[in-house]
């Protein structure tokens, strides 16, 4: 009888650090931190909307010229795009691998299970991540690749596209919901990355990492939300 209880898996030989589940987590952490840097910059750019039409468009244009003449036109932008794409692939791939591993690790679920010790955000990482991914696709179609103006207005003026988009209440709602998810994702994700990178070895540093992740979550999600709310409220038009 192939008895699962008495059959002893042997010890593995030649284990490699790069083949472990922790190595996957490193990839998650590093690619995640790339996104944190990106969204911080992105948010800063968005806030230019408060400075008016010209300032915002100039900023968008400047991004294309950044690094010139060392870099070709739009060079920086493309480097960033490629970098982000790689990070995205890595982040999603590692997440799927870890998710599948978790599924296999507990095939039979508990009848009753409490989640003592877990913050709600930590339990939203997978669904939240998926939501953000779907949002990202729409967001790129909306503003970058497709340039869809739901009001049918012009699309090659970034500021006007932004205002037209968030003038529509349900667009703002989608956007805010996505930012809430992003906030939750960062709230656990930043802390988790610190932990994964092994920089939270004491109770103190753990508390600091938790504060930092909450602060980043609030600043980023809040910062992004300001512009659409301002547009909808008529502060930006």
């Amino acid at each position: 009888m192939a008895d699962p209880v008495t059959k002893h898996p042997t010890l593995i030989e030649g284990a490699r650090a790069s083949r472990t589940s922790i190595a996957l987590k490193f990839l998650m952490a590093v690619s995640g931190l790339v996104f944190v840097g990106f969204v911080l910059g992105h948010m800063y750019g968005n806030l230019k909307a408060f400075a008016g039409h010209d300032a915002f468009n100039e900023y968008a244009h400047h991004l294309r010229e950044l690094g010139e003449p060392m870099l070709p036109h739009e060079g920086f932008l493309w480097i960033m795009r490629v970098g982000l794409l790689v990070a995205l692939v890595v982040h999603v791939w590692a997440a799927v691998a870890l998710w599948r591993r978790a599924q296999k690790a507990r095939p039979i679920k508990y009848v009753v299970k409490k989640h003592t010790g877990a913050i709600p955000a930590s339990r939203l990482m997978r669904t939240g991540g998926l939501t953000i991914l779907i949002f990202l696709v729409w967001h790129l179609i909306n503003f970058t690749i497709g340039k869809v103006n739901v009001q049918g207005g012009e699309t090659d003026d970034p500021y006007n596209l932004l205002v037209d988009t968030f003038d529509v209440w349900w667009m703002t709602l989608i956007y805010l919901a996505a930012m809430a998810m992003l906030g939750a994702h960062l709230h656990h994700g930043v802390w988790s990355a610190c932990q994964t990178l092994g920089i939270t070895g004491t109770a103190q540093s753990r508390a600091r990492a938790k504060t930092l992740s909450l602060a980043l979550a609030i600043v980023i999600a809040g910062g992004f939300s300001l512009v659409p709310i301002a547009v909808l409220a008529g502060i930006i038009d």
Binding site: A15, S21, I22, L98, A105, G117, H188, T196
Partner: peptide, 20 residues
């Protein structure tokens, strides 16, 4: 490396730092 390798080999899941 050896302990984590065995941990993975046994079919335990990866950590997501949830804290439960």
């Amino acid at each position: 490396v050896d302990m984590v390798g065995q941990h993975d080999h046994e079919g335990f899941g990866g950590c997501t730092n949830i804290g439960e």
